[in-house]
Design a protein around this nucleic acid. Structure first.
Lengths: 240, 240
DNA sequence: TATTCACCTTGATCCGGCTCAAATGCCTTG
DNA sequence: CAAGGCATTTGAGCCGGATCAAGGTGAATA
């Protein structure tokens, strides 16, 4: 656990991610109890059902939430990006496992202190609640994907989701909105675990999209979307 | 829409399902704004992305939440039983479709009045928040099932989930905890949509469990679990 | 430059669950 | 009780994605 602990002094901008509706002095109160942690890839943040001792904002990097069956089959049940919140207010533990996917910069808060602030600051819990509703929406969106989409549709949906997320946190490599270019944060194995597929199937679908000139690869992690129209068509839209 | 509207006068017990931590007089305030609705099976409660005009407690019956792809493939993303809450506080609309599965008795609240009460009553929003965290946990549990479990494991998990839910709301038919007996609220088609399978596969798995003497059927909807041990083994446990 | 090792791709084969088709309940209505 | 109509079961065959098995690639180390 080679974690660096730094004083949090100047990340108020990031704190707004959790508490956008809060007043300036309330953000300051949050900053006052925050510490920073820098974690390498593959670091376990939270063991299955273990007690959680802190909350955190992701300042940069990607965290995966996973669930695993007794025989080792694994499913990624959530992906958290910069500005996402990590932790379950007023719950002792969580029924899943959280692990860094890339280098991750966390802004952490002691559980007790944080929960006290949540109670004291008007509208704070409301905001966390709305965050959780968003997470629930994404989870259900992903249930539709897992239950009903083909391998090709799954991979297309995944690439679009990552492109959108990377765009929104300013991690895109290119500037052309019609031809996004970005670094995949996940390995093929992790993509497979997210989509309910095998590594081989993911690889084959990506290769096919490359042959079809829908995407281009540089190395294995940098992806350019060449034909947004066809990528979106490959995803199969929702009705209504 | 053959809906019956009744005055809600004596369902304070049910209201506690939403607001268990509330004081007696606060429950009374909730009762004061409540109306009852009786809906037949197959009734749409909420269209995809439509605006929602009310909140509701389910007093009895089962409601399914579904998402559908453009070509008609459907996935059930949530099942709500008696005492569950329906609606998204402070959200205008929902990205899914809600429909009755059985006869459903709803205790409904006008959106505006309800949200006013949520703001006024100390701890009410907190409780709704915790409910939503539970829903998020179930959704993620189901993602593991959809992405990584085999057909047999899916059906076993489903039967156990329904048995547990029916038990907890007092809808069991038999009293032997080792040999639960209950009426399946869902058709084979709905089970398939819940598990990401086809009708035929669901039917075959159920038939196999019948042959294996793990369960017994009376008609097509009444199920007895004969061998809880083997049913739980068939489900494949989670690690940790 | 060579070596290693982890990750990724590609090929060949297999199989679980899907599709298509038909038969069998089971409830409803006359 | 018969007839009709839906839900469910059962069968036969197929196919998408899994599995098994080599290769290829690229970054880190020697």
């Amino acid at each position: 656990m080679a974690e660096h602990l730094l004083r949090c002094d100047s990340c108020a901008v990031r704190h707004r991610a959790v508490c956008g509706a809060l007043e300036r002095d309330e953000v300051a109160r949050l900053s006052a109890i925050a510490h920073h942690k820098l974690l390498p890839p593959g670091q376990v943040i939270l063991h299955d059902n273990a007690e959680m001792h802190y909350f955190a904002n992701i300042v940069s990097g990607v965290v995966k939430l996973t669930k695993t069956l007794a025989d080792g089959r694994q499913q990624i049940v959530g992906l958290q990006f910069a500005s996402d919140f990590l932790g379950r207010p007023f719950r002792a533990n969580s029924p899943y496992h959280a692990e860094t996917v890339t280098d991750v910069h966390l802004c952490t808060y002691d559980k007790g202190q944080f929960e006290r602030l949540v109670k004291e600051i008007e509208g704070f819990e409301h905001r966390l609640f709305q965050n959780t509703l968003d997470e629930l929406d994404s989870a259900r969106e992903w249930m539709l994907l897992l239950g009903r989409k083909s391998a090709g549709e799954k991979v297309a949906s995944f690439l679009l989701m990552v492109a959108r997320r990377m765009e929104s946190i300013g991690c895109k490599v290119s500037d052309d909105p019609e031809r996004p270019r970005f670094n995949l944060p996940l390995s093929r194995a992790e993509i497979a675990d997210f989509l309910g597929l095998t590594i081989e199937t993911v690889s084959r679908q990506i290769s096919r999209m490359k042959v079809d000139k829908i995407i281009a690869l540089e190395g294995t992690r940098t992806i350019s979307i060449l034909d947004m129209q066809r990528l979106m068509a490959a995803m199969e839209q929702e009705r209504d």
